[in-house]
């Protein structure tokens, strides 16, 4: 039996999670919420993490009913993410590793989402749609790598939803995209799919350009715009996921990442899957939103297959692609 602890802080969520082999012992998270109309900035986010990290760590240990002495391996997010917040959690992880003389494992955040999704949802070899504030990727495993079949060629889908919500000054709690409500009239928006890649920036600028006209003339309501945005961007995502599945001959899909909690997205994916006799695997917000457990899960797999990360490599990087990681733990 091996106990692993994971530290995550690459964006505005601070999380610490503890697992014993494949069992989750605790999963604690604290989110930095910004006022309506504002996004989170590196400095303030790092301050938030610094302020709460020890509290979150203690709570995770209490929930798991263990102390740091019982932990066998320390895992933390190496990247990708914002530099300052990443450094905070890495510093804590490194300190704990030194104090208790434990091995440490540097984890790629995206791989964390994937491995956690595979574990929780119980799917062996799915096509993965990874959608969050900073990422939009369609991933499939082959030959020791999670290969990116499709991705956004500009901004991430979550970023697109968040920026749109900010444009309308919707609340950021729990996340701006969450407050996108349902309208009924469909506005035609730019729909940009290139192969298995997607692009969202055109939608945003189109919205910015026409927003006041649409609202002033009462042609569309705010709800209509939210509805149309959601219908359009999700349709793009389902389309490229389906294309990737057809291309690799896969019949399982896993949705991970914060946007993956969206029920309409899951519903659309489910319809697509039913129509091609495939199965959808999704997780709920405890796991699809950034958390510490995902880092522990991926870290432990890595640890069991090739041991800890050499101390000099326990750094942080803002840019760290999913396909950079050599996946030693899979066949």
């Amino acid at each position: 039996m091996v106990i692993a602890i994971g530290f995550e802080g690459s964006a505005n969520k601070l999380g610490v999670g503890i697992i014993r082999d494949q069992h989750i012992l605790s999963n604690v998270r604290h989110t930095y919420v910004t006022p309506p109309g504002e996004g989170f900035l590196p400095r303030e986010t790092a301050q938030h993490h610094r302020k709460y990290v020890l509290e979150v760590l203690q709570e995770a240990l209490d929930d798991a009913k263990i102390s740091l002495k019982d932990v066998d391996v320390i895992c933390y997010t190496k990247g990708p993410g914002m530099g300052a917040p990443l450094t905070v959690t890495a510093l804590v992880a490194r300190t704990v590793a030194q104090l208790y003389n434990k091995p440490i494992v540097a984890v790629n955040h995206c791989i964390g989402h994937i491995e956690m999704g595979r574990l929780i949802a119980g799917t062996e070899n799915p096509t993965v749609l990874y959608v969050s504030g900073g990422n939009t990727q369609i991933i499939a495993y082959s030959q020791q790598r999670y290969r990116i079949f499709g991705e956004t060629i500009d901004i991430a889908v979550g970023n697109c939803l968040d920026r749109f919500a900010r444009l309308l000054k919707l609340s950021n709690n729990p996340s701006p995209g969450y407050n996108i409500e349902q309208g009924e009239k469909l506005v035609l928006l730019p729909y940009v799919v290139k192969g298995m890649d997607v692009s969202f920036s055109g939608i945003l600028s189109h919205m910015e350009e026409h927003l006041s006209k649409w609202l002033d003339t009462k042609a569309f309501t705010i709800e209509d715009l939210c509805f149309s945005l959601q219908e359009t961007v999700f349709a793009m995502l389902i389309e490229v996921t389906e294309r990737a599945m057809a291309h690799v001959g896969s019949n399982e899909v896993l949705i991970v990442g914060g946007v993956g909690c969206n029920e309409r997205l899951q519903q659309m994916m489910n319809i697509m899957c039913e129509e091609r006799n495939a199965t959808l695997y999704a997780t709920d917000e405890r796991f699809c939103i950034d958390n510490g457990v995902m880092i522990a899960v991926a870290g432990l797999l890595q640890y069991k297959s090739k041991g800890g990360t050499p101390w000099t490599q326990t750094t942080c990087v803002q840019r760290y692609r999913t396909d950079d990681v050599y996946v030693s733990w899979r066949k």
């Binding site: 499939a140 082959s142 030959q143 790598r145 290969r147 990116i148 079949f149 060629i153 192969g195």
Partner: peptide
């Protein structure tokens, strides 16, 4: 350029050997 980039990535993924 994007057309070529799409091709490059699809070749890398589908034919990584």
């Amino acid at each position: 350029a994007v057309d070529l980039y799409v091709l490059e990535r699809s070749l890398l993924n589908a034919h990584c050997e």
